[in-house]
Nucleic acid binder design. Sequence first.
DNA 1: CAGTGGACTCGAACACTGTGCGAGCCCCTT
DNA 2: AAGGGGCTCGCACAGTGTTCGAGTCCACTG
Lengths: 258, 258
Amino acid sequence: MADFTDSVWTRPARPRTGQPTLSREQIVRAAIELLDAEGATGLSMRRLGARLGSGATSLYWHVATKDDLLELAVDEVMGEVYVPEVGDTPWRVGVSVMANGMRAMLLRHPWVIGQLGTRPTIGPNVLRMSNRSVALLSAAGFSGPTLSHVHSLITAHVIGSTTTETAVGAAVRRAGKSAAELRESLQPFMDKTAEQYPEYARWREEDGVRDMEPEQVWDQSFGFGLDRILDGLDLWLAQQHARTGDSDQQPPGTPPIS
Amino acid sequence: MADFTDSVWTRPARPRTGQPTLSREQIVRAAIELLDAEGATGLSMRRLGARLGSGATSLYWHVATKDDLLELAVDEVMGEVYVPEVGDTPWRVGVSVMANGMRAMLLRHPWVIGQLGTRPTIGPNVLRMSNRSVALLSAAGFSGPTLSHVHSLITAHVIGSTTTETAVGAAVRRAGKSAAELRESLQPFMDKTAEQYPEYARWREEDGVRDMEPEQVWDQSFGFGLDRILDGLDLWLAQQHARTGDSDQQPPGTPPIS
DNA sequence: CAGTGGACTCGAACACTGTGCGAGCCCCTT
DNA sequence: AAGGGGCTCGCACAGTGTTCGAGTCCACTG
């Protein structure tokens, strides 16, 4: 049984010599390509081996198990998200950049979502991100357990909203139609269930979303949520300041209402 | 290829006669039990069949595919979450009850998380929940696309925060140790990486979480985030009211700061 | 009452999956 | 020249989801 202490990250990497034809980095990169192209079900050791021009079981010299490979792949793509250096921008902007960057990355690699619930991510790139995030939030005026909660709140919003977005993305892809066509073909079913759910139906008529690009709607929804969260956090900071009574030193954030 | 139009919910159920030994409901219930007990990897058609005392392939008469079965199972457990009737409580309370209920359900059935990113959930119980939620938010003063965004924001917070929570839950379970023991055994690794990430390390020392029950920390984190979100939404409602100028008619919500 | 058809169960089989094992290759060191 | 370790890979095993066709049983019709 795999102990958590014994994970890809805690175990020492195998020493390398010579010029082997395969390398861990190469395998991870190829795995990511395969995952991007065909989703989580498209990745099998045999197919990955074929893609690399080698036997399937050769991979096991460089990677202990498929699960480890996935963990490596997740951390690798986590490295794609940029988190601003502290002091470069107001904290709201810094957090927004991080959140939007992480969302964009999850949309580029939708298979990551399915991995996040199965094991905690503690790879170097994730830790690097966390480090930056902590710096950002610490400078904003958060500390102790609250800082942790704020970090969780931001990433939870990214993960949560992206989860539902990739879900319908997957459906659209499976159907092989455009999102609009799919909604069209789903219409009769929705009409039928709408009869049972009056509130839902009433809202569906007036939502005024029918003639927008789906992408725009997602972006808007994500941005709206993030803004509300940041507003709520700003409010909390203001209250905290009022309570402790040091009203002379402003936290380096933009005011909640512009 | 499975069209989305052709899903478990749009397809008519098979007509039933006689007293067959298997039923769709029974299969779904057993599947949920298996999933709860052993996680997503523990569910296989053969094992499910064995549990029900029947052949594995008999299940395919009642359920078109394993994917369909999972969809049914997800919707089934979605039915466990209670969403208050509109008017019973202030909207903040109503939303809190819904969010906490959904979180509790996801923690009871951690395998659901892994399903949410792969396909959209449009089962009857989900629709029932959405209907209630729409009613709640509509009464609170949200409408149009914003209402949709608010609904997404709430569920995203539930899904996102539960995702990371179940992730470490899975690790704890795999390790076969308690959460405390696991963190203990992970300590040397964390210490080593902490050297590289100063901010992270500094915060880890002062987070003051080390001697709390992990469950309490999760609860606290979730509650903190939800409160910030609700504050942000209340603020938005207030601004909206100020803008449209009807200051006499208060929305039926508790004030943002008590 | 005989018989026909449909609801339902199930075993065999197919094409896959992740992974362990041991044989073999190649190059570096002694 | 001999050895050994890094590395590749074919075979095999246990298990997966799903298809197909044969078989059972019951309700209805002629």
